[in-house]
Amino acid sequence: MALDQSFVGRTYPPTAPYEVGREKIREFAEAIGDANPAYTDPEAAKELGHPDVIAPPTFVFAITFKAAGQVIEDPQLGLDYSRVVHGDQKFAYTRPVRAGDRLAVTSTIEAIKSMAGNDILDIRGEVHDETGEHVVTAWTKLVSRAPEEVGP
């Protein structure tokens, strides 16, 4: 089912703030096996000029993807999430995410395309801290595969 093109440009309300904790960053860094002390040791992070431990570059995806749930689960959009795969992912950082941040995400549908029966959805998530400063933008391309085997 082709998705409704009129949803292109639609922006969803900002999410309630996500509070970034030191131990959550540590848990994520351990899960990816990354021992960089900037993720776990506040003193090491300060030596690099950061006020507290920072998060690995892809950490913020957990926050932006949860926010994108507003789009993915929008019954009016009608995306079949059981057939969705992650196509592309990109981040552009103004600064790293760090412990103590309270981050709100504003999700916008940038594009909807249909190719060989697949629905392709581009979602942009703008992440701001509680002072309103931009932290990072995340672009997520989701591909909802056609129900039948149609093309590659």
């Binding site: 960089n36 900037a38 993720y39 690099l48 000029g49 950061h50 920072i54 690995p56 570059p57 892809t58 592309d88 992912q89 990109k90 981040f91 552009a92 950082y93 600064r95 790293p96 672009w139």
Partner: peptide, 9 residues
């Protein structure tokens, strides 16, 4: 410094 990464896709 991981903060050196300004874009990644």
């Amino acid at each position: 410094d991981p903060a050196a990464v300004v874009e990644y896709g």
